[in-house]
Write a protein that binds this DNA or RNA. Sequence first.
DNA 1: CCCTAACTCTGTACTGTGTACGGAGAAGAG
DNA 2: CTCTTCTCCGTACACAGTACAGAGTTAGGG
Lengths: 258, 258
Amino acid sequence: MAGVRTQDNGEGDPRRAIELLWGVPAPPRRGPKPKLTTADVVRAAVALADADDIDAVTMRRVAEHLGVSPMSLYTYVPGRTELLDLMIDHAHGELPAPEPGLGWRAALTAIAEQQWALFHRHPWLLQVTTSRSALGPHSFAKYEHELAAVDGIGLDDVEMDAVVSLVTGLVRTTARSSLDNARLVRTSGMTDAQWWERAAPVLAGIPAADAAHYPLSSRVGQAAGEAHNAAENPAYTFRFGLARVLDGIEALVSQRKQ
Amino acid sequence: MAGVRTQDNGEGDPRRAIELLWGVPAPPRRGPKPKLTTADVVRAAVALADADDIDAVTMRRVAEHLGVSPMSLYTYVPGRTELLDLMIDHAHGELPAPEPGLGWRAALTAIAEQQWALFHRHPWLLQVTTSRSALGPHSFAKYEHELAAVDGIGLDDVEMDAVVSLVTGLVRTTARSSLDNARLVRTSGMTDAQWWERAAPVLAGIPAADAAHYPLSSRVGQAAGEAHNAAENPAYTFRFGLARVLDGIEALVSQRKQ
DNA sequence: CCCTAACTCTGTACTGTGTACGGAGAAGAG
DNA sequence: CTCTTCTCCGTACACAGTACAGAGTTAGGG
């Protein structure tokens, strides 16, 4: 029913990875011409992840996709972890530059919507942690654009950072539940409705799970289910949450103004 | 540098798993006395995950921890996926019942703080998806308590659900970045500062990564770094975000009231 | 009381993962 | 032409989840 894990990397020396992210000019090459480029590997990995899961990105499968032996990938990429880092920055490159002249509210809304769309194009982005990996050019640009949206509206630097985290975090969680669910539908072959149809009678047979013990849950769950035709509607939760968050920020901004 | 993944389950029939969650009375037993109980297995798995990672929860290691062969675990638990589900509900059991008589704002704050603490006690909770798994008694109770905090303050049922998702989602994202980072420090053996010390000169050697290209990022990044003595301060982001979100909810509530 | 059905537990084995290691061949530097 | 450096590959290892079949243990039915 559930159980998604997050595995981390724990790399030692960041040098090589950072150089790859920024596309170092390439040291003096002596040996045979490489068949591929690092970008080829990244593109293949992204294609696999898009089509399926982050779990589909195995060194063997990426290699097969490129018509190359698994071990030769290590010429272009230090390991799987660094490949994931490169994939992240690659995907961040799809985020457009901000439209100039928008107010902070419209700018933040645009950013949130773009990231929402990005996550739906590349669901694997939500299966991967980004703690120390946001060091590529596109990730830098992403952060820069986010800050630009709230620059000069009366917040101090620390608040600007926190506001940006708040909005991007909202997008992440709501998109995550949207896409976790979509993935479950795919992998289990059951829609939410079908799954509930099977789960409901089991629960009904358990006295302790009676609706009387959970009055609010059953009332609200039913109402939400009817309103959305599903157990959850992450798109609604996203836009509802964004409206609340923006209102909350607005309160702070106008407080700072006086 | 980064690369945490989330793996999902995709189980077929939820019956057995739900029965385990709710502790079915146990069918007529004929064979030899079991050495263990399902609860033993869950406790051992939680202990392993607490001490380390969700990745530390392998069937082999749990079995070893219990002095039993790996395959015998399958007597108590259908598979690793369902074990994770049981772990989640087990952890949710640590969330206290709400203090009665609090206003919605205080109640939501208490809930958020309790979940923040729970995630820090059981970081692996953030490494695991919960899409369709919140069907255990403690997860039910969690949702019920969350709804109770905002019941009767003028929101409709769908809004209540969305408000609750908004707050719990905030806790999840901010706690996640807090704990992803802590785990990275552990696994890499480098603090944030040490890591930046190593990464900074590499970045400095790359013309395109110059501060001039990212004026806001470098200004804000430096200010945030000095204010927090770290690249990030998730605890601040959490409390700042919570204040904004509550303000945003307040705006909606008072709008509904008139 | 014994036999048999039901149950627990275990050893072995299969597929799949990331990647360390060593060797084979290609191509530029001298 | 030779040497050094590089790319690429085959093999191998440790570890994962768990299918399967068998050995041993217990309680119910006769």
